[in-house]
């Protein structure tokens, strides 16, 4: 198991290989498709420092307000492929080092991971309680009023956040491999017939 601190240096990114299990510490920023669209269409400069070598998390948390503090009540990953139209550009523009999500992403993202040295971390879908317990602090929130709580950009401080590298910076994708392998089995099951 690898322990990594976010922001993640490009030197550390290239060491990661698909199949590695990682515990993440430090700052991660939630962003779903609406936030990605905003990052690309408006190119807000103030996000550049925040996202440089940073980690984006595909997540729309359930959040509670206790006094002046935000508490994350549930925070598992959302399906990553919805962010596919924007991700390659976001990695290039903001220098992001890591993306956390579920289900993997497509070829455009895979190429961008290779070209700009970044990595895709897979978190277990639906693991909202286990992952919420890894959030030690909510540092800030952006675009809360504009996007609403589930689609705002929450700046989270996490400890021992468990993920698996499923797409690395060397062009490997565990999702692609699994899709092809199971596709071959599907073809043989269909040819054989089963009823």
């Amino acid at each position: 198991m690898v322990i990594l601190n976010s922001p993640i240096s490009k030197k550390d990114v290239v060491k990661l290989k698909t199949g590695d299990t990682v515990h993440l510490n430090g700052i991660i920023v939630t962003a779903r498709d609406v936030a990605h669209k905003y990052l690309i269409e408006n190119r807000p400069k103030e996000y550049k420092r925040l996202l440089k070598n940073g980690v984006l998390y595909h997540c729309g948390p359930v959040v509670d307000r206790v006094g002046k503090k935000w508490i994350i009540a549930a925070a598992g990953p959302t399906t990553s492929i919805r962010q596919e139209p924007y991700t390659a550009e976001v990695i290039k523009e903001y220098g992001v080092s890591g993306i956390i999500g579920k289900g993997g992403m497509g070829d455009r993202t895979l190429n961008a991971l290779k070209k700009y040295k970044a990595v895709y971390f897979h978190a277990i879908g639906g693991l909202a309680q286990v992952l919420a317990e890894c959030v030690v602090d909510v540092k800030d929130v952006f675009m809360l009023k504009e996007f609403g709580s589930p689609e705002a950009m929450w700046i989270l401080d996490v400890r021992d956040f468990p993920v698996t590298v499923t797409m690395d910076s060397h062009g490997n994708s565990l999702h692609k491999t699994m899709y092809e392998r199971s596709g071959a089995i599907l073809n043989s099951l269909i040819t054989k017939g089963g009823l």
């Binding site: 598992g76 277990i124 693991l127 909202a128 286990v130 919420a132």
Partner: peptide, 24 residues
Amino acid sequence: KTLQMILKNIDIAREKSLPMCQDT
């Protein structure tokens, strides 16, 4: 390991009366 984590998540959600998945 994945199924173990899922079962752990199910237990925490029940104990805390909170959504087991943030997408309700």
